[in-house]
Amino acid sequence: MSWHRKHLLDIESLTAEELTTVLDTAREFKAVGERDIKKVPALQGKTVVNFFVEPSTRTRVSFELSAKRLSADIINFSTDASSFQKGESLKDTARTLEALNADIIIIRHKAAGAPHFLARFLKAHVVNAGDGAHEHPTQALLDVFTIREKKGDIAGLNVTILGDILFSRVARSNLWALRKLGANVTLCGPSTLVPRVFEQMGCRVTYDLDDALANADVINLLRIQHERQRKTMFPSIDEYARLFGLNRARLAKAKPDALIMHPGPMNRGVEIESELADGDQAVILEQVTNGIAVRMAVLYLVNGGKDAEMNA
């Protein structure tokens, strides 16, 4: 048992022991979700705010259900980033939420570092639900939870992350988590979206999909984020699908029991052939189920955590 943090801001600053504590705790919460009565009173009387300054349905709903299964009261505070003047007004809005006596504030924001900024002055616990292209810690935790559940151990596994790495906070958080837990990570995608600089994070970068998939235990497909991309990143969606889309022939390069993962929402026929998304190797829906267990674990752990430096 190793957890004393008041916030969950990123994966980068966590130790392997802390990651393992979250995963072990999540395992017990997964069992809660499989019961007839899916609710425990661990956060009874606590107020949780889903503070989403960037559109999201899946993550918000997952956090909402997680908080409810812990018996907390949760309110959703979503707003369009354009109504914000950033800086001061983000601070003011967060202070307003705190004035409601929120105990935990879950924040999604298009600006990297927004959760860290809030954690510096809020008394509440802060959980990062995605900040810009920086990190999406709970997504990485649910991904490694799913891998560990299927493969037993993360260390030594070959994990290939495929797609839009540059704009992906999911890729960054996954990279940190997988490296800390001892996996071998390969990144692949169009060279404009997979800069070589990622090699400094201890992974392999290749632009040859067959090479990237060879011997893979896990293939994590990232969504091509149309909304974040300028047209200059690659010529066309069709070309992307042809060069980097996962299909049955390419999957044959990976290990026969390789897992296919996707954080959703997926573009069928682009990153992944529709038939594979529904196949035996896909664990995409299990990722959704595991997301609730992992987020319950995170809310439970940060609620009990007291970060000395943050309390000062």
Binding site: T25, E28, A31, V40, A42, Y300, L301, N303, G304
Partner: peptide
């Protein structure tokens, strides 16, 4: 049975490891 999630002193005591029910 793991009593951890049903305790009345969750915010007062150190976090303990959750074990299976």
């Amino acid at each position: 049975v793991e009593p951890g999630l049903h305790r009345d002193d969750l915010s007062q005591r150190a976090m303990a490891e959750l074990r299976p029910t």
